[in-house]
Amino acid sequence: MNTQNWSQESYIKAYKFAAIAHQNQKMPGSELPYIMHLSFVSMEIIAALSVEKVADGDLAIQCAVLHDTIEDTDTTFEQIKAEFGEAVAQGILALTKDNNLVKHLQMADSLRRIKQQPPEVWMVKLADRITNLQAPPHYWNQEKIAKYREEAMQIYTALKDASPFLAARLASKIEGYKAFINSEDV
């Protein structure tokens, strides 16, 4: 009996769309194609879906693959909606930072909007930060590194109920990220 609640076709459709949208982008501080980040985030979601019962796996996976399209490309909400439906488009919009707000207000605003979405969208934000808690780019100063970890704790606190699996992964990454903070500098 197959209990998988997502389809490879929906993943592939979203992946192709994202690959075209992010075509010449690189991961910050590297020469690696940006699509790798999207692959890592969707891999975290697929891992969570393999151990947790989630209502709409396709929503989680498509939002994972597409989560940066509105924020980082010229893709519009309407294009996402036409291609993937209202739920995916609303999820991605919630995952998109509002650049009209001053930087220090953006995360709280984003988390407020994400919490109005189904838990599958919350999972994407957890997976995104899990993926991003690697060694910080060499050009980040200690203050930025410490702030990034604090933001991760904010994400964890706000969204942990969506997925015990991803919450545990994020908590572990937050703990490990301490290694990049030189306590005398902060």
Rank of each mutant, 00 (worst) to 15 (best):
Q154D: 15
I130M: 10
P118K: 08
E83N: 11
E52N: 10
P137F: 08
E52A: 10
F77K: 09
I45V: 15
Y156V: 04
P118R: 11
Y156P: 00
I20N: 01
M123Y: 09
P118W: 00
F17D: 00
G85Q: 08
I46W: 09
V65M: 12
A18K: 03
Y139G: 00
A21D: 10
H67Q: 11
Q154M: 14
T96A: 06
D74T: 09
V124E: 04
N99A: 10
S39D: 15
A82M: 11
W140G: 01
G85L: 09
L49T: 02
W122R: 04
R113N: 13
H37E: 07
E151D: 14
A55Y: 08
L126C: 05
A146H: 15
M107C: 10
A135Y: 04
K53M: 04
W140K: 01
P137E: 12
V102Y: 07
N99E: 07
A18T: 07
H138T: 08
E120W: 09
A94P: 03
E120Q: 15
Y156H: 15
A94I: 06
A19Y: 11
H104Y: 13
E44R: 06
G57V: 04
L32C: 05
T76D: 02
A19E: 15
D109C: 07
S110Y: 02
I45P: 03
R112C: 05
D72Q: 15
R113V: 09
K81P: 04
K53R: 09
L66F: 13
V51H: 10
P136K: 06
V102A: 05
E150V: 11
K125T: 00
L59H: 03
P119T: 12
I145P: 00
T96D: 08
E83L: 01
F77D: 02
V121F: 00
G91V: 03
Q116E: 08
P33N: 12
T75N: 01
V65N: 03
R113D: 05
A48P: 06
S50N: 12
E86N: 11
M107I: 13
L95R: 01
E71N: 10
T157I: 13
D68W: 01
Q62W: 13
R112E: 14
I145C: 02
T73D: 06
K147V: 07
V121T: 05
V54R: 07
I45D: 08
K97N: 10
